[in-house]
Amino acid sequence: MTALLERLGRIFIRFSEQTGLWFRMLWRTMVWGIKSPYEVREWSRQMVRVGVDSIPVVFLTTMFTGMVLALQTYTGFQRVHAENFVGSVVALAMLRELSPVLVGLMVTGRVGSSMAAEIGTMRVTEQLDALKALATDPVHYLFVPRVIAGILMLPFLVILGDALGIYGGYLVSVKLLGANPLVYEQNTFSFLHLNDLWSGLIKSAVFGLILTLTGCVRGYYTTGGAEGVGKATTNAVVSASLIILLSDFFLTKVLF
């Protein structure tokens, strides 16, 4: 019994430590974010890495999600004779929920992991110490451009994802299931509010912050050589994905 309590206590302490560390690094990133010199070249490099390079993944994920969503809702809605509303459901679900979360998770896998591996390798090869020795704070040079790229680029990816998801749903409904294109189109847009779009975009900016910062922090605190880098990478993906899914609920509650 005491052993169990001890274990739980230890898990709790570790969790609190990690949370505290995360917020401390968030604070440091914000403080350094406003300081010059601004590495514009590095910022744009990271934006390409987070944004442009993620387009193929986002393309496939959201398009197929929109398609499968149309298929599934059609099956369900047919039973209650509400086939006409498939378009509305697909659009609402993509904008409010699926596009932000799926893009967040996919970019975590693609970019969050590689940031953790990159910074982790810099840690074990003393490149982070070298940065400091060259009077450059790693948070300033490495964290700030990555986090900014995450916050700015994720909303763009989500807009793209929204459009592709809706189009995927349209394709399946109209071409495969024989829905009336005009009715489908009308039902897709007539029930949408601007808030549906905004809430998704705000969420995605927060997810962008979470996945880049988690990748950076995990990489920064890497210990123990190649094995450590591997662990840091796994941890970055797992914890960023979890934080995204948990915060998704609370953000949705607030932004409703």
Partner: peptide
């Protein structure tokens, strides 16, 4: 500071 393995970027 010059590092052990160079620590080049």
């Amino acid at each position: 500071m010059a590092f052990q393995e160079g620590a080049l970027f």
